[in-house]
Design a protein around this nucleic acid. Structure first.
Lengths: 333, 333
DNA sequence: CTGTTAGCGCGTTCAT
DNA sequence: ATGAACGCGCTAACAG
């Protein structure tokens, strides 16, 4: 194990000088700096990061707490986090929680044991015990699905607006019976998107029919099941607004299986704009979310927090985009 | 910062005893153990993992080098890694490389700077410089897309067999003009799957028509493009065998756009069995790979390596499964 | 079974 | 601009 002392001997300087030459080159004369660098090179010196981090009390890593990493939407966000982290020399620790609260808390605990410097939480739950939050200054950022209680800085979409825009798109096409397949009812995402939907419906002087609102869990299977229920009911929707693309894809399958056509008989919309959604049959009308920007913004705020500063924006909103493809069309009379 | 010394004072024992009571409870009397544990609790003591790891020269983390984390296949493998790692108290560092060799090497460097204890490489490249490999004992495992040079232990699918089985499935349905959309030609995955395809074709006393073999890059767009090329050629395939599901989905779109039907006119097959592949139109015939098992096996081998032992199996093969859905049917005469 | 003593490798004083 | 000395928090070695 070639350490800093070996280099100092080889270069004929003190260990302190070696450390400085490597970390703060401007503090050392050009002459000795070159001497040190060449000595480090010939010795094949690699600084021991564990020692360095230990000494400086920083792990230079951040953790992403994600309900399910195999969900492509989340993994795109994580890609944004990773890119931003890497730019500042940070690594990303993965915390796949499968939605389990205990797992979340356990992983968040790594903040206190110095295994990570900060956390990006991708679901609406503060994984820190209240006594550990340190007056809202704990280095943790809530991203994508956010809590509205002010306990953490957030990065989120204008979910109300996005859902409203999508509903208006359907209303404009003449749809009056618009069904909804939501996420879990206890999620703030569901609440926000439902309220956008309601706002648009009511603004069109229609009333919300709660028989047309079904709870899903973001899986294609749940979209398929909810759609079967909808088609079995007495009042048929002419459009189904799904709170993510996977459920929309499941919905389209159930519609086909029932012998109906998308969008001729029933229009379907999604949320997220997965890469595959441009290739479904028919290509899916959906809401695009800026996944990389989600990750990058969350990371930027986290850097502020870790520096001990108040972030420039405590509740950042990133823009959505309505992507109209072929799964929506005029309402069937 | 409440440290081990604070606890030792509170409990009236030495720091060494505190350390032992926490790490090797059996080395300490029941009496003092309880004394220490209660003291630790009242002091709110959380061991500083950076110090612990530094001292024991292990980071208790492993890194997954992945070409693209937003590819659902990879993220499912990573989920398997994470689960297995967590069982032994290890964390997972994410190394998204976007296929960039320099990024890979740079991340692999973290092995030498003690930032990680081992690496799972999900693409066919040894990220370690030859002089750093330490006689094949370096703690690094190649998974999914594997190098055949013996430089690392591997976990892989029987790609030749899987591809052969799929081709045989199509041959049995009467297909004689089977096109192929591959991965990048320089990938061993492509080589293996192509050879399985050839073997099946030749076993059926047919000859491989290289005009029907197109290179893709695993993206749906590349599947769509390659399919357009195939349909523009003079000899039409009656089936297209794609080396992943995304390309198959892109292929199906191009086929529809050209006014043909799947599978009535052209059968299409994929590889990977993504969760969405059961919901495409039509549902995709594909090869399922045991993603979690990939991750778990790689992690098991890596644990052996990190323990300094030869792994039980240096080249583990995990089983594939042919999933027949509706995207394949009898060949059109 | 327990306490004392030594570092791990590095960055950071405080001198010079 | 440089060197000597210290200590981060913990575990390992050696006594007792």
């Amino acid at each position: 194990m070639t350490n800093i002392r070996a280099v100092s001997k080889l270069a004929g300087v003190s260990v302190a000088t070696v450390s400085r030459a490597l970390r703060k080159p401007e503090m050392v004369s050009k002459n000795t700096r070159e001497k040190v660098l060449s000595a480090a090179k010939t010795a094949g010196y690699k600084p021991n990061m564990m020692a360095r981090n230990f000494r400086s009390k920083k792990s230079y890593s951040v953790m992403v707490l994600v309900p399910d990493i195999s969900n492509p939407f989340f993994s795109m966000v994580i890609r944004g986090v990773q890119t931003a982290a890497k730019n500042k020399g940070y690594s990303v620790l993965l915390g796949n929680t499968m939605g389990d609260v205990d797992a979340e808390n356990e992983l968040a605990h790594m903040l206190h044991t110095n295994q990570t410097d900060g956390i990006i939480q991708l679901s609406a739950r503060n994984p820190l015990a209240p006594e550990d939050r340190g007056d809202t200054a704990a280095p943790i950022v809530n991203c994508c699905e956010c809590l509205g209680d002010g306990s953490m800085p957030t990065v989120s979409l204008d979910n109300v607006g996005a859902s409203k825009a999508m509903t208006e798109h359907l209303l404009t096409l003449g749809h009056k019976k618009i069904a909804v397949i939501t996420g879990p009812y206890d999620s703030p995402l569901t609440t926000a998107r439902l309220s956008g939907y309601s706002a648009a419906v009511e603004a069109a002087n229609l009333t919300v029919d709660y028989a047309l609102v079904k709870e899903g869990d973001y899986s294609p299977a749940s979209g398929a099941t909810a759609t079967k229920q909808l088609l079995a009911q007495s009042v048929h929707p002419t459009a189904i607004l799904c709170f993510n693309d996977e459920m929309a894809i499941g919905a389209m399958q159930s519609i086909r299986q029932a012998g109906h056509k998308v969008p001729a008989d029933i229009s379907v919309t999604g949320f997220d704009d997965l890469p595959l959604s441009a290739y479904t049959h028919p290509p899916l009308t959906t809401i695009a979310q800026p996944t990389e920007e989600f990750g990058a913004s969350a990371m930027a705020i986290l850097f502020d927090l870790m520096d001990g500063q108040e972030p420039a924006e405590r509740n950042r909103i990133v823009p959505y985009k309505l992507i109209v493809r072929d799964s929506t069309g005029p309402a069937k009379k």
